[in-house]
Amino acid sequence: MSARADSLKGWGFAAPALLWTTAFFVVPFVVMAAMSLATLDGRTLIWGLHADNYLELAEERYLWRAVLVSLEITATVTVVSVVLAYPLAWIIAFRVPARWQRLALLLAILPFWTSYVVRSYAWLLVLAREGVVNQTLMTLGIVAEPVTLANTRIATVTGFVHFFVMLLTLTIYANLVQLSPNYRRAAMDLGANAFQTFRHVILPLTLPGIATGAFLTFVLCIGDYITPQILGGNTELTVPQVIMVQLGRRADFPLASALAIVLMALVTLAYLACARWLRIDRL
C-alpha cells in the first residue's frame, strides 16, 4: 500500500511536467512528422504517407546545400566559441579574485541584456565598409581598401560567437569552480608541469561542462533564423531560412516540416555523439 502511495505521489509530481511535454512537444512533433509526409496538390493539403518532400530534399541542390551550410556554420561557431570561452572561464575562475568573480561574470553576460535583433544589426554596422573594424584596419594601414565583412559567413559566425561565448563561459566556469584544487596540486606533486596538468587532469574533468555548452550552442545555432538572415546577407541560405521562404508566400507546410524534421535529426545526432563520447548523459 505504501509503495503504491509512493508511486502515485511520484506520478503526481511528474504529471505537470509530463502533461506539459506531451502537449507542447510530443503532440506538435507528431503533427509535424505527419505533416512532413503530407503533400500539396496546388494549394490543397493531401494527408498520407508521401515521401515527396524528403525526395525533393535529396534532389534539390539548394535544399541539401542549406543543410551543409547550416552544419558548416554551426560546427565553426561551436569550435570557435569553445576555444574563446575556455580561457575566459579559466581566467574568471582562477585568476580573478573571488570577490570580483560575480562582477566578472556579470560583465561576461552583459550582452545578453540587449535584444538579439538589435545586437545583430549593431554587428552589421560594426562590420560595414564604413564600420569600426574597417576604419581601424585602414587607420592602422593594415588594408588600403575596406574589406567586405558584413553580409558574409564571417559576419554570421561573428554574431553567433559573440552570443555563444557568453553561454559557454557560464557552463565551463560552473564546471571549473567545482574542481577541487587538490587535483592540480596532486598532478604537480607527481611532476606534471602546468600544461600537462591542464592536458591530462583539468581538461578531461571539464569536458562535461564543455560538452553541455557545445551541445546547447549546436542546438541554438543550427535552428537560428535571425543571425544568418541579418548578418549573412542571404549570400548563402541555412535550413531555417529556407523553411521561412517555404512558409512565407506558398505556405508549403509539408516541405517546411520535412526540413524541420531533418534539423531535429541533426540535433539528435549531436546529442547522441555527446552522450556516446563525452558522457553528457551523466550530467
Binding site: Y121, L125, A128, E130, G131, N151, I230, G233, N234
Partner: peptide, 18 residues
C-alpha cells in the same frame, strides 16, 4: 551583388554606404 536583403537590411545597407 554584395547581399540579398529585406526592407530594413536594404535600407541600412544603402544608408550606411555598405
Amino acid at each position: 551583388a554584395a547581399s540579398v536583403a529585406g526592407v530594413v537590411a536594404a535600407q541600412t545597407a544603402l544608408a550606411t554606404g555598405e
